[in-house]
Design a binder for these strands. Structure first.
Length: 302
DNA sequence: TATACGTGGCG
DNA sequence: TCGCCAAGTAT
């Protein structure tokens, strides 16, 4: 390929970096965990809360959480149940348990400071490949490929030329993300945040606003005529009538209760006894609830 | 690799 | 109304 082509500019890394990062300079949202005072703990808390929960619902809970537990050691002194209660209705309350566990591990094994290496972060409960890279990059400015659903979609469109990424993250995606990572540490960290923001604000799943996209000219998907997705449709998770819904109802009662809750009260939340019992067993197994000697239930240690 | 795991807003 | 979607992790 010669350098004379003018109709369809190549998405060379340097052009992508410049376009996305300059756009981010002007359009980055002022989110609380992006402020300097958030610190690594603030970044970590936000990352836990943002796992599958939209930004707008996270913000108020994040503010309360950081005000109450400004350092990992502060949270570590609380019962897990208090963390679950303060989690409110963010969903997937096991994340609250894991965040509490991460705080405890940080207090015990890391002197109270959020660890800095990807490997140390990965060892914390609730921290997977994405969160470890995100904390290392956003909190400590390190050079990591941060591959979340937004970035995967941006890369799928801009570089690969497909409307959506595969259902599960592939080795090819990781390779591509590493290839596109700018050399410099600071630029790499900026790039990670910028590509996520672009996916969240412009290159959205359902209705991308290509007119506002800084790299629309370079986008392989647009150049291909914006073809519709071919692969298998993403499986939609059902919710109504599932154990998850019943668990949510049971936990909602425990979360709001000041005193331990009698079995009879929990029995009100769902009509089908077998499913109800199974859901409650699940909560107990997961450590999201506990049964007292008198037969009543409450959040763990609350 | 596929599945379980909450909740709510939007088109 | 209802399906789709939201900064994933653990098993």
């Amino acid at each position: 390929m010669t350098a004379t082509s003018t109709s369809a500019p190549e998405a060379d890394p340097a052009s992508l970096h410049a376009g996305v990062i300059e756009w981010f300079d002007d359009h980055a949202r002022d989110l609380p965990w992006r402020r300097p005072e958030a610190g690594a703990w603030g970044v970590m808390v936000s990352e836990f809360m943002l796992q599958q929960t939209p930004v707008n619902r996270v913000i108020p809970v994040y503010e309360q959480w950081l005000a109450r537990w400004p350092r990992p050691a502060d949270l570590a002194t609380e019962s897990p149940g208090e963390a679950v209660r303060a989690w409110g209705r963010l969903g997937y309350p096991r994340r609250a348990l894991r965040l509490h566990g991460a705080a405890t591990a940080i207090a015990e094994r890391h002197g109270g400071d959020v660890p800095k290496t990807h490997q140390q972060l990965l060892a914390l409960p609730g921290v997977g490949e994405y969160t470890a890279a995100a904390v290392a990059s956003f909190a400590y400015g390190q050079r990591h490929a941060v591959l979340d659903t937004n970035v995967r979609r941006v890369f799928a469109r801009a570089v690969t030329g497909t409307q959506y990424p595969p259902n599960a993250t592939t080795a090819a995606e990781r390779r591509l993300a590493r290839t596109l990572l700018p050399e410099g540490e600071r630029t790499a960290a900026r790039w990670a945040a910028a590509t996520m923001e672009l996916g969240a604000l412009v290159c959205t799943a359902r209705s991308p606003e290509c007119g506002r996209c800084p790299i629309a000219r370079l986008c392989a998907w647009r150049q291909a005529g914006s073809p519709a997705h071919e692969g298998p449709a993403r499986r939609v998770q059902t919710y109504a009538g599932t154990d998850r819904q019943v668990r949510g109802k049971l936990l909602g009662v425990l979360r709001e209760a000041v005193e331990p809750v009698p079995q009879a009260v929990l029995d009100q939340v769902w009509h089908e006894p077998e499913q109800r019992a199974r859901a409650l067993r699940g909560l107990l197994m997961d450590g999201l609830a506990e049964r007292l000697p008198d037969g009543r239930y409450r959040l763990p240690g609350a």
